[in-house]
Design a protein around this nucleic acid. Structure first.
Lengths: 344, 344
DNA sequence: TTGAAAGCGCTAACAG
DNA sequence: CTGTTAGCGCTTTCAA
């Protein structure tokens, strides 16, 4: 481990002072271009790398942004990180990532870590188990913060979400259009805002089409395959089972599809299924899953841009919280495409 | 943005010196427990958060580890990051992430960024377009470095890989066992080490089983769906087409399967397919894809542990480069399970 | 156009 | 057990 070269090394080699070097490096107007050239060259030949910790300490800026997600292995969040990282690194920020594992305690701990690391801003998606939000409130007091997807209602915090309500409406509209009339909903837990809004959208769309909402046609559960299968089985065991299922995630939809096919029922002929999120597998499975695309990468980049706006506004207290709501898109696939069969 | 509280604030409130506070906070043995208690309490009531930039500058440690991958949206890399992040954060490190987009230039730039940020160590998977490796060599001179999956041959650098050769052998063995005899290989580019080793494993396994290697049965391409489809079509257009395909990635395998099914051929009856990597979609598609599991999460955590060993060895120059080779696992699914049909 | 000096927040000798 | 002092590498007035 050879000692790292500092501006002092290059200063002494050149017979000038560190402050001159510093100015040369930052292209200060009142420094001769010869000096600048000499400094740059000497810097390169010595393999000089600015020490961001020193700069940061001095300037009170770390150049770091923290991004917290429930889990990196979910393709939705991985893609969001991808989108955010690209924007952030373009703007000269390095990205710290951490996972909450959907736990409130871990979430708090990781946010603490960000703060210690002196991040200049934070992008986060709230952990499923967090039912109280003072920790975010406290952070937002003095650190630019953007919440995406899993947000909560707080008018002082910038958010990036999709129109979950509208997405759910599109899903139900489509099902109705395909001729389904008894539409059940496998929902996520309603304390999680996006799931709550999808439930509301579902109800609203039913009403719009004159379909009555049945309490026994909606179940809340964790958004994974197994629960999808379990709930679907409950639904199919009913005396008057549904003829379509709107699931609040593609994992739930996939689980439900398995349950349905295991019973020898046909999709989409007997039962139509629509998911939510457009996971990578959704287009590849059989039947391919009709779903609502969340534009995960755009969410990430939008959150990053929103954060950068806050970061570069001179007076952060006065920066108006931004509220980005992306419009989700219905992607029709075979799990619900009944009309085509009729038409052919 | 209220000013952040420093040890000086808490020192003056308590009428002691900053150095006493510092020692109290770091639980220095020669400080009275009353003082410690007082300091801790005052710290909490003032909302004190240690400034890692200052500590880092002073100690010459940033507490940061950089992790560079081609792209976060690939589930393999996302999962590897997940595995690494968990270990690293357990050990008190924060994780910086960056993507190379498989470009040599971007890779260099991102690594530079890590160095400026004063990362203490780097975990990386080489970009597909990097055909020269001095940049890694240079980094390894004075920064602990672990390469995983996409490595290159360098005995001075720690690596974590799976046994790609052995994985390919397992794939071919399985195909032979299922009765396939004309086995083609859709390969990745051979300048990428893992792909190269899989090609070698493929050839070696053919030889082992007394099957002759045919040059026209192997194609190198980018590991995505489209290329898989294209190459499969070339293969199927041949006068004597193969009866099985070993693809170097599940994306290639999926693309090939589409081509095969589009021609009305049956899988696995007419043609068997084995992929590589066990992507999330591979178990869900129809037919489900037989593949080689790479243990991506374990790769990430192993790389992290290997880095931590280097980080905590007192004399890093003397730390022996570690070489972890994980044994991959064959996962048999429907795309190759011909015998079962015979047996039933 | 450049130099001198102070300081960002914290730690680590060395004194006391 | 606690205080003094110096300094990590860099930037930024203020002088020259």
């Amino acid at each position: 481990m050879k000692k790292k070269t500092t501006i002092l090394d290059i200063a002494s080699k050149l017979g000038i002072t560190p402050s001159a070097v510093s100015k040369a490096l930052s292209n200060h107007p009142r420094i001769s271009s010869e000096t600048k050239k000499a400094v740059i060259e000497m810097g390169e030949s010595l393999g000089y790398k600015p020490n961001y910790m020193a700069t940061g300490l001095r300037k009170g800026k770390s150049g770091l942004v923290g991004m917290l997600v429930p889990g990196i292995h979910y393709s939705f969040f991985a893609t969001a990180i991808k989108g955010a990282e690209e924007i952030l690194s373009q703007h000269g920020y390095s990205v710290l990532i951490a996972q909450s594992k959907d736990s409130y305690e871990v979430e708090k701990k990781q946010l603490e870590g960000f703060l210690r690391a002196q991040v200049e801003g934070i992008i986060s998606s709230v952990a499923m188990n967090s039912k109280t939000y003072q920790h975010y409130r406290a952070i937002a007091e003095d650190t630019p913060l953007v919440l995406f997807d899993r947000t909560y209602d707080d008018e002082n915090i910038s958010t990036v979400t999709i129109d979950d309500f509208g997405g759910a409406v599109k899903a139900v509209d489509h099902l109705v259009e395909m001729g389904y009339k008894k539409i059940a909903h496998i929902a996520g837990y309603s304390h999680v805002l996006p799931f709550k809004k999808r439930i509301e959208g579902y109800k609203s769309a039913l009403a719009k089409h004159g379909l009555t909402f049945r309490k026994d046609f909606i179940f809340q559960c964790a958004p994974n395959n197994d629960e999808g299968t379990q709930v679907a089985n409950k639904l199919l065991d009913m005396e008057k089972p549904p003829d379509a299922i709107f699931a609040s995630s593609d994992y739930l939809a996939y689980g439900a599809i398995k349950a349905i096919m295991d019973r020898g029922l046909k999709i989409p002929e007997d039962i139509g299924v629509v998911g939510f999120s457009n996971e990578e597998f959704s287009s590849r499975v059989s039947p391919s899953i009709t779903t609502i695309d969340q534009y995960s990468e755009v969410m990430g980049s939008t959150a990053a841009r929103s954060l950068i706006v806050q970061l570069s506004s001179d007076n952060q207290k006065e920066a108006v919280p931004q509220r980005h709501i992306l419009t989700p898109k219905l992607i029709v696939r075979n799990s619900s495409l009944r009309k085509v069969l009729v038409t052919i």
